[in-house]
Amino acid sequence: MIGTASKLELKGRFDAYQAQGTKVWLKEEVEKMSGQGIKANILVDMTQVTFIDSAGLSALVVGIKKAREHGGTLHLFGLQQAVQIIFELSWLDKAFPIFITEEEATKAFNP
């Protein structure tokens, strides 16, 4: 928990092998926060992610949709260039709030 957001750190190749577990974690976390009456804000640290495929994107899409359902949202920060390109090509840079630093990403959550 950082302020009012839960933080998730992803590492390495974010593909089908990691995606399933991440998806489950995101859903549970959102429901837990919502159960505690907290806005379901999720902060995802992408600095260590070297590659993302459609399964990884799918997990994040599920995460942001779940968070929005429960009054929160999902912020990404620290995308490496290769990952940033994938987000841009698939237009997902416009679907996700993406920030450079953790500080910016945290500040951007509505109080």
Partner: peptide, 19 residues
Amino acid sequence: EILPANGPAMGVVDMDVAG
């Protein structure tokens, strides 16, 4: 050259946002 997308993937947002 690679042409980037002009809209989000289907199933991501519940709005008419196709470019």
